[in-house]
Design a protein around this nucleic acid. Sequence first.
DNA 1: CGTGCGGTTGAAGAGTCTCAACTCGAGTGG
DNA 2: CCACTCGAGTTGAGACTCTTCAACCGCACG
Lengths: 257, 257
Amino acid sequence: MTQIKSKKFMLLDPVQTDHIHCESCPIRHRAVCARCEADELELLEEIKYYRSFEAGQHIIWSGDKMDFVGSVVSGIATLSQTMEDGRTQMVGLLLPSDFVGRPGRSGAAYDVVATTDLVMCCFRKKPFEKMMETTPHIAQRLLQMTLDELDAAREWMLVLGRKTAREKIASLLAIIARRDASLHLNAKNGPLVFDLPLTREAMADYLGLTLETVSRQISALKRDGVIVLEGKRHVTIPDMERLLEEAGDDSDGGMLD
Amino acid sequence: MTQIKSKKFMLLDPVQTDHIHCESCPIRHRAVCARCEADELELLEEIKYYRSFEAGQHIIWSGDKMDFVGSVVSGIATLSQTMEDGRTQMVGLLLPSDFVGRPGRSGAAYDVVATTDLVMCCFRKKPFEKMMETTPHIAQRLLQMTLDELDAAREWMLVLGRKTAREKIASLLAIIARRDASLHLNAKNGPLVFDLPLTREAMADYLGLTLETVSRQISALKRDGVIVLEGKRHVTIPDMERLLEEAGDDSDGGMLD
DNA sequence: CGTGCGGTTGAAGAGTCTCAACTCGAGTGG
DNA sequence: CCACTCGAGTTGAGACTCTTCAACCGCACG
C-alpha cells in the first residue's frame, strides 16, 4: 500500500549480497543453520542464494506458490493477513535470523513485506526439504525457533484480546526496547534508546488499532513522561519498570528456560 | 474458577486409563507418535503413563515445574494466560492428539484446564527429550504439529485484532463445526450439528469479549437464522456458507497443502 | 513552491463493556 | 414432593473506549 522508495534507504545497502560464506555470516549462530556442522554448512552453501529487497517491497504475496524458504539476514519485514474488505492484521515481525516459509507447504499463507531494506538468504525448497529429513540439526533448530514463535504469538494474543490501547502501545514499545537491548548488549541500567522500525499505521496493524489511536496513545505516554520522543521515531525509555507497569506486564518479564 | 464436579461427567469415563497399547491407541496416527515405527513405539511405551482429569480440573498451573510432556488422548482442555488483575485470554484449545508442554523448558508458560473429563498420555520429560535427539520421527512430527499450531494462532490473531463481536462468534462456531465434521466424517452436505464444548465465559476468554457480549451475539445469530439453538449448547448450522460470510472469512476456507 | 506522505489532533458516533435484574434447569435437603 | 440454592445464561440501560471522519502540520522530494 505504501511503497517507500527513498534513496536514503537505498544507499545503506546493509550487506554485500553476492558472496557470504556461511562461516562468516552475521546470523550464523542464530538462524536455522545454528546447529549445523561445517560439512552440513557445505551442503547448505550449494542450495542457497541471496536476494535483496527495498523498503516497502513485497517479498511474498499470500497465496503465491513458494519455491524457496529462507532466513532474514539483515533488515526487518512484517508478516500479515488481510481480509477482503481491507482490514489487515500483522501476525509477525521478522528480524535478522528469523525464518520465512513453511517446509512441506507449497503456497504462502501470509503477505511478507520489507519495512526496511532487507537481505534474505534463500534455500531452494525441494532440496531444503530433503535436507531436513537427513540432517536432524536443521529440523531440531527449526523446531526450537517455531516453538519460540508460537510462544510469541500466544503472548500477542493476550495483548490483542485483553489489553487496552494504552497497554498495547506500552507492550509494543517494551518488546522493541527489549529486543534492541539484547541486540546491542548495552549497559543494561542506562535509559533505553531506540528508533521505531514501524510507521504508525504498521503499529496499528500489529496492535489491532487504528493509526489515530496509536498516535493519540503515544502522545499520551509522552505527555505522562513514560517515554521521551525526539522527532517521530526516536524513543527514549527513562524507566523500563514504569513502561512495563503501563503495559500491564508483571514485573521481571517472567524468564522461563 | 468454576469447578465442575458433577457426577454426570464422572460416569462417562471415556477411556480405560490403565493399559492402552500404543498400537491400539485412538490417537496413534495423529499425535507426536504418528510417524513412529513399531520399535520406536516400544521405547515410548517405557516412558509413558496415563493420567485422568475431571472436568474443571487444572492440569497444569502457569509457572509450575513440568516433569512431563504429553498428548491429549480424549477430552478437551484449554490453554490460557491470566494477568494479575484477572483478565484472562485463552491462547489454545487442546483436542485429542494435541501436544502439551515444551521440550527443553522446565517451567509451564500457561494454565491448562480440562473443560471435559480428560485422559492424557504423559511422557517423562527427560527421557522424552533424549528420545527426541535420537529419534528423528518424533521431532519431525512435533515440528509439523507446532507449525500447524502457529498457523492457527496467527489465524486467531486476525480474529482477535480485527473482527467484530459478531464475526468473532461466527468464526468460533465455524471452527468448531469444521473440526467436528472432520472428526465424525459426516456426509458433508447435510446441515452440521454439534454441541458447544465451551461455556459462554470460556468463549468470551477465547474471543477477547465479555460473556454478555457473547450471549448477545449468539442470540442475534439465532434470531437472524444463521444458527439454530436447542437448549444452550446444541447448535445446528443450516448453511455453512452463510456462517462463513458472517465470519468475514473468504469462502472456501483456503486450503493450503 | 506545490504535492504527497507520515503524523497529530478534534468532534461525533458506534460498538462493546459494566452493572444489574432476571430466567431456567439441575441438584439438595427437609 | 416441593421449596431452596446455585451456576449458566439472557437481557436491558447507561457509561466509556475506541473508531470514524475531517482538518491540519511539517518535512522531503521533484
